[in-house]
Structures are given as structure tokens and as C-alpha cells.
């Protein structure tokens, strides 16, 4: 196995494009585990941490550009991110242990392509986009377009994610992410739910994005969830309707982590609870 740590995006792309069986190393919290478990035997590992910008969080058009190698711990201590996108920050903060947080990244969580990835529903709810670089240059795509199926992404050979962009936080906007796990930490989502919403002057929802994880082969944006909320105050019947459409939208399977019935029901419960938290945040209160 060869290890390379190029200094530029171009060099990294060249290496990745030239070698079949090459893997990108950012935090390594998935890759190194798979190596150790002998699930993978890569010919080449390309470490992108030495490329300029990969470890930076920078303000851009009112939003935030987060380099692909920025760790969860770094995000958790960034005042601007915490203020604007607390749901995304807490979602990435749920990944693994304190030690893992020192390495784990948003881009890695996305590229691992697990349907249960915690940060992905939060990024989808936040309408985050990605800057993907590759042999044909760079392109920006929505997060929801990257996962293809469990373990697979839509990235082409030689491509990798250079950064994640969280857009400007809307005025009176708030987001939240909740997951259900059988334990209290060090676990994988049985259901995950991200909610981002905007309140109007009357306290009604004017815009919303609701996403679910771990209840289908890939993250899903539940349009009916947004429709259940828009034009209504985020409480009472609106939340019951939201829960019902989220339960209906979920397409889970029975497996070792939960049953279809359980996941459907909890998808609704989490959507309701996450919406309540996002609404509190949208009002400028702490939750």
C-alpha cells in the first residue's frame, strides 16, 4: 500500500485518477477502521490534509465554507457555525467518541455513504452544497445528490470533496438534528431526522426542509414534511401531521438495529421533536 500526502488539489486529483483502488484519507475514522478490520486493502491512500484550505472554516456570502478535513471538534468550537447552524454542528458532534471527534469530518461522513450517517440529514435540511474537485475541474452539487446507495456515492473516479458550504442562515431561521440510538453514545442512528425552518412575523413556518436518515437506502428529503409545516405554527396538529407524513415517507427495513414499525413510528417522533427545537432556535432562543 502506498501513502501520498500531496500539497495541491491538482496533485491529489492526478493521484486518485491514475490509481484504481485509491482511497482518500481525511480524518480516517472510517478508512483506518476498515483497513484494520481487513475489509479494504487499498493500493494507494491519498491524504488530503496538507492541501491548502482543507482545514479552514471561512465566511463566504453570509454562509460558511468548511474544508473537507475540518474535524467535528473544530466545528464544535466555532462560534459562527454554532450560532448559524447548531443542528449541523450537533449532528457532526454525535459521530463517535471524543477521540473520533478530533478527526471525523463532514465530507468523510458523507463519502462513507452509510444511510445512517448523522451529519448528512442535518446537511440536507440546511441545504448544504459541496464543492467537488476532479479531473474535469470543480463542480458544486447539493448534498442529497451525493449518496447513491449504501456504501456508494455519485462521485466519479478521481473526484473528491474539497469543501462543504453551509448557506447564509435565513433571518428567523433555526435548525436541529435528532437521532435515535439504543444507547446514549458510541452508536449508530436507527433513525435520524434533520429539520431546518424559517418563521414569519406571526410565528408561522414560512420555509422548511425536513430530512430523514437510516430509514431508506439513502438520506431522504421529505417534501411532505415541509408542506405539513409551511403556513402553520410549529405545534399541535401541525406537528402531528408532520409526524404522520414522516412516518409514511420512511421506507425502512427490519434489521438488527430496529424493526420497520419502530423506525416508521420513531421517524415521526423525531421529526416532531426536532421541529420543536428548530422553532425555539428560530425565535432566537436557546435549545
Amino acid at each position: 500500500m502506498r501513502y501520498e500526502a500531496p500539497n495541491s488539489v491538482e496533485a491529489a486529483v492526478d493521484l486518485l485518477a491514475a490509481t484504481e483502488g485509491a482511497y482518500v484519507l481525511a480524518g480516517g475514522t472510517d478508512l483506518l477502521v476498515k483497513l484494520r478490520a481487513e475489509m479494504l486493502e487499498p493500493d494507494l491512500v491519498v491524504d488530503i490534509k496538507r492541501i491548502a484550505g482543507m482545514k479552514d472554516i471561512t465566511a463566504e456570502n453570509g454562509g460558511w465554507r468548511i474544508g473537507a478535513a475540518v474535524s467535528g471538534a473544530e466545528m464544535g468550537e466555532h462560534a459562527g457555525l454554532l450560532r448559524d447552524w447548531p443542528g449541523v454542528v450537533e449532528a457532526v458532534g454525535l459521530i463517535g467518541s471524543t477521540q473520533v471527534q478530533g478527526r471525523a469530518t463532514l465530507a468523510g461522513n458523507l463519502c462513507n455513504a452509510s444511510p445512517a450517517a448523522d451529519s448528512v440529514p442535518a446537511m440536507v435540511a440546511a441545504n448544504a452544497t459541496l464543492r467537488i474537485v476532479g479531473p474535469k475541474g470543480s463542480r458544486d452539487v447539493a448534498v442529497i445528490d451525493v449518496p447513491a446507495s449504501p456504501g456508494k456515492t455519485t462521485l466519479a473516479p478521481g473526484e473528491f470533496i474539497a469543501s462543504v458550504f453551509l448557506p447564509a442562515k435565513p433571518e428567523h431561521g433555526g435548525d436541529a438534528y435528532l437521532r435515535f440510538i439504543p444507547r446514549t453514545e458510541m452508536d449508530i442512528a436507527v433513525v435520524g431526522c434533520g429539520v431546518s425552518l424559517v418563521l414569519d412575523g406571526a410565528g408561522k413556518v414560512s420555509a422548511a426542509r425536513v430530512s430523514l436518515g437510516a430509514v431508506g437506502p439513502k438520506v431522504m428529503l421529505v417534501e411532505a414534511g415541509a408542506e405539513a409545516l409551511i403556513g402553520r405554527a410549529p405545534k399541535g396538529d401541525a406537528l402531528e401531521d408532520l409526524a404522520a407524513v414522516c412516518s409514511a415517507a420512511a421506507t425502512p427495513i427490519d434489521d438488527k438495529r430496529g424493526t420497520v414499525d419502530f423506525r416508521r413510528h420513531v421517524a415521526g417522533v423525531l421529526a416532531r421533536r426536532a421541529t420543536e427545537i428548530a422553532a425555539i432556535r428560530a425565535k432566537g432562543e436557546t435549545a
Binding site: R183, T184, E185, M186, I188, K256, R257
Partner: peptide, 11 residues
Amino acid sequence: FLDYRIPVASD
């Protein structure tokens, strides 16, 4: 140990 769930300290 991911899916064979022994309790963790926070449980």
C-alpha cells in the same frame, strides 16, 4: 461492538 451493544459509561 457496534451492534452487540454492551452499555457505555453514559448509559
